[in-house]
């Protein structure tokens, strides 16, 4: 009896370790798989040329990824610029000012927003945001735009990332003890001063990880952006220009045009680039979070 309990005890932790190792090995396996698959391309082209060249002519064996990298990063940053203030202010309002029932009401709303398939956001972007950008917003800035643009992609992405970022921020602000607010108020701070100096500071590492996760999610989003951004392999000169994101490139072309030599390998290299960008961004965010926790 005792023996079997002890046995179960020792096995249980081993199983958990096995599961953990699997989770840890997964990114490693994916990364190395991508490297292996893109090796043929890397053998015939220099890394510098692949990353920084603007010429994307697969039929001429020219694979410059710079336009895709620029578009991907730009549309993601633009999306976060739109969604971060919205999420930050809403989460502060919901946790600090709104009556409790509003927060209770918002939770399922956020879950529903998160659960909408991205293709639905894409259709919405196509029907509403693209014409809005082309007919209303671009003329405001004296720009000509068909609407299929970075801005349209960014707006759709911003809306899609709101539920994720908002949900995490709500959790961050909910975990700040009430007493910390009481301490600040009792020193004569107003509510706004307390939020600005104490709550945001206390939650800074959580807030930053919310942004980091939002960035990774937005960078990898494929179908909704692909539907509204125009898919032109060029370096966009303004946010009203069309672009082509890395995920869009892969999704649009994989399995097609395989007659072109090294095309398959090039797409895999695109995936590898995406993977590397996400890893770099995560490391940067981790570093900032680590720095912010020292205070």
């Amino acid at each position: 009896m005792i023996l079997s309990r002890k046995l179960k005890d020792s096995i249980s932790s081993k199983w958990m370790l096995a599961c953990l190792s699997f989770c840890l090995l997964l990114p490693l396996a994916i990364g190395s798989g991508l490297v292996l698959k893109s090796l043929p391309l890397l053998q015939s082209h220099s890394l510098k040329e692949l990353i920084f060249s603007e010429d994307w002519f697969p039929s001429d064996n020219q694979f410059g990824f710079w336009p895709f990298i620029v578009t991907s990063v730009w549309v993601t940053v633009l999306a976060l610029i739109i969604s971060i203030p919205l999420c930050l202010l809403s989460s502060i309002y919901l946790t600090q000012f709104a009556p409790k029932w509003v927060l209770k009401f918002m939770r399922p709303v956020i879950d529903i927003l998160a659960g909408i398939p991205s293709v639905v956001y894409g259709v919405w972007g196509l029907l509403v945001i693209v014409p809005l950008v082309g007919d209303k917003i671009a003329p405001l800035f004296h720009q000509d735009s068909l609407g299929y643009s970075l801005l349209a992609g960014a707006i759709v992405l911003a809306v899609m990332s709101i539920p994720y970022i908002l949900n995490m921020l709500l959790e961050v602000f909910r975990q700040i003890p009430v007493e910390l607010g009481e301490a600040s108020l009792s020193l004569g701070a107003t509510k706004w001063e307390t939020i600005k100096h104490i709550f945001i500071r206390k939650g800074s590492s959580g807030i930053l990880s919310a942004f980091g996760l939002g960035f990774s999610k937005a960078l990898g989003e494929t179908i909704a952006v692909l539907m509204v951004i125009g898919n032109v392999p060029q370096i966009p000169q303004s946010m009203f220009d069309s672009g082509y994101t890395l995920p869009g490139l892969i999704a649009n072309n994989y399995g097609e045009m395989m007659s072109i030599p090294s095309y398959d390998s090039a797409l895999m290299f695109g995936a590898l680039l995406l993977f590397v960008i996400i890893v770099i961004i995560n490391i940067i965010f981790r570093y900032i979070i680590y720095k912010s926790e020292l205070i």
Partner: peptide
């Protein structure tokens, strides 16, 4: 209310240092 509160120092059950130096 802020001047009223500054007339009183508050000490709670557990210390809640502000997230700063």
């Amino acid at each position: 209310i802020t001047t009223i509160r500054q007339k009183m120092g508050l000490l709670l059950q557990r210390p809640y240092p502000l997230p700063m130096s």
